[in-house]
Design a protein around this nucleic acid. Structure first.
Length: 483
RNA sequence: GGUCCCAUCGUCUAGCGGUUAGGACGCUGGCCUCUCACGCCGGAAACCGGGGUUCAAUUCCCCGUGGGACUACCA
């Protein structure tokens, strides 16, 4: 099969309907990776031919999300390129010009059937358990008839005159050979009554005009490929290579949808899932290398990605694994980078992180507990906020042993300015020996006083983060609990 | 209903005729440790069913079953 390695041009062509779907991100990612791997171009085209569904700020949002994720396009509405415009609503003259040719050649025809009739028709067909398709009433209208209706201003659409005999066989990188009977293919509407093209028409015209070499998109388009191929041939154009990606699925194995969880990329980004993790996770949904490796940076993916290793079966979007991978990246990337990424979450929570040295230590510790950055605040705020003491905690702190331990530490910490974690470790050993209390009995009250929780990091880490002064202050406060 | 696509642990997957069917998430036992988390080591867990082809099928073919997609003047 010719994968046309020479002039690779691929596109991601979303509709601006509000947000970027994770399935869309996966499609974009695979397009992007294939382009980068093959030294080709990655194009962003906006398919906004449905006036009803387009949302005002969606375009800007889409571009910023894609860019934030690191999938920078080479051509598109914002960056331009020699095959623009890249927004379909700005290309209506082009479609009009092309539909003319189809009409003249007899590959398309005017249809004056109104929606009411079509709906009734489909209902009847469904009732008779027949596939709902256009019955061809306007297929063979006389020239005069058409001219007359047009002159009278009767609303119309333009349909594809699709052959009713034979079958269409085509190749797909993922599916191999696919065959579909032409009798199953409808006379697709190409131009709607508002003059805008449908997806099928616009995408074929644009893919050709934009010299797209490989059409990489979701599997939901597989069964409409015959229509597309027919159009390419009707125009005498070269057919691109098709690559239909397996669907992303809900846990119940239906096509991934909101309703059953978060599907917008923005919402994951807002929660503070690192783009590195999100991309890595999504790359593994339907693609896998030959070995056991699963951790890849975007750059590494660019090097190893190949269309041939894309799977056929749909893949369930597993939050558990995303959470693991999210945490993995937060734990393995550089602390300063994570700290920088997490900054806005602290600012939103109103926590003062101007002490950078402390902030970095907090991040280094708290990151062990989270899978996304928004969670990190909850594991870090006890290093900043005044601790709240519950009744149960108070009971433990008020015990005689607890008070002895705390008093010991206040006194001990007061003896010296500087305390390294090693110094504190030594003091822990010494205190245990001198106080005659050990284990949980020793650690829990201390950790509770310093950190507000019996469970958490070890004492040297806690004191290292808080500093001597704050530590003494917190311990002292624990000795002065109200009765 | 019709057409098309798909089918290895619960999930993501490796496998491309001969393997103790491998890895990851999750689950679980242990180690580390005062605790939690992290980390490390181990365990349970899968070839949808039936026919072929073959000396040999998870792997190739057919049928069945199951799941999904499409079936709009939405993409």
């Amino acid at each position: 099969m010719d994968t046309g390695n020479h002039h690779i041009r691929v596109r991601f062509a979303p509709s601006p309907t509000g947000y970027l779907h994770v399935g869309g991100l996966r499609t974009a990612l695979f397009n992007y990776l294939f382009a980068r791997k093959g030294g080709g171009k990655f194009i962003l085209r906006i398919e906004d031919t449905d006036q009803k569904r387009s949302i005002p700020d969606a375009l800007e949002n889409l571009i910023s999300t894609l860019t934030r994720a690191g999938l920078q396009h080479d051509e598109g509405p914002d960056v331009g390129g020699e095959y623009g415009p890249y927004i379909q609503s700005q290309r209506v003259e082009i479609y009009q010009e092309h539909i003319r040719k189809l009409l003249d050649a007899g590959h398309a025809y005017y249809c004056f059937c109104d929606e009411e009739r079509l709906e009734k028709l489909r209902d009847e067909q469904r009732k008779r358990k027949r596939p709902p398709m256009y019955d061809g009433r306007c297929r063979n209208l006389s020239k005069e008839d058409v001219a007359d209706k047009l002159a009278r201003g009767v609303p119309f659409v333009i349909r594809l005159r699709y052959p009713q005999e034979g079958k269409t066989v085509f190749d797909d990188i993922v599916r191999n050979r696919v065959a579909i009977d032409n009798s199953q293919v409808d006379d697709q509407v190409l131009i709607k009554s508002d003059g805008f093209p449908t997806y099928h028409f616009a995408s074929v015209v644009d893919d050709h005009l934009m010299k797209i070499s490989h059409v990489i998109r979701g599997e939901e388009w597989l069964s409409s490929v015959p229509k597309h191929i027919f159009l390419y041939k009707a125009f005498g154009w070269e057919v691109p290579v098709f690559v239909h990606l397996p669907l992303l699925l809900n846990t119940d194995r239906s096509k991934l949808s909101k309703r059953q969880g978060d599907v917008s990329v923005e919402s994951y980004l807002e929660k503070g899932y690192l783009t590195e993790a999100l991309l890595n996770f999504i790359a593994l949904l339907g693609w896998h290398s030959a070995d056991d490796r699963e951790i890849y940076s975007l750059q590494e993916l660019e090097e190893v990605f190949s269309l041939e290793r894309i799977n056929k079966a749909g893949a369930v979007f597993d939050m558990e694994k995303l959470n693991w991978m999210g945490g993995y990246y937060i734990r393995h990337l550089d602390v300063p980078y994570i700290a920088d990424q997490a900054r806005r979450f602290f600012e939103e929570a109103g926590i003062d992180i101007s002490d950078t040295e402390k902030y970095l230590k907090v991040i280094a510790t708290a990151r062990d507990y989270v899978s996304c950055l928004s969670m990190i605040v909850e594991h870090a705020r006890m290093f900043y906020d005044t601790l709240t003491v519950s009744e149960e905690d108070k009971e433990l702190l008020e015990k005689e042993d607890s008070q002895r331990i705390i008093a010991y530490w206040v006194e001990a910490l007061g003896r010296r300015e500087k305390w390294t974690p090693d110094d504190v470790s030594a003091l822990v050993k010494k205190a245990i020996g001198e106080l005659g209390v050990k284990g949980k009995g020793f650690y829990f009250p201390l950790r509770l006083a310093l950190f507000g929780n019996c469970h958490g990091p070890d004492i040297p880490t806690l004191i290292d983060i808080l500093g001597r002064e704050e530590s003494v202050e917190r311990l002292t406060r624990a000795m002065q609990l109200e009765r």
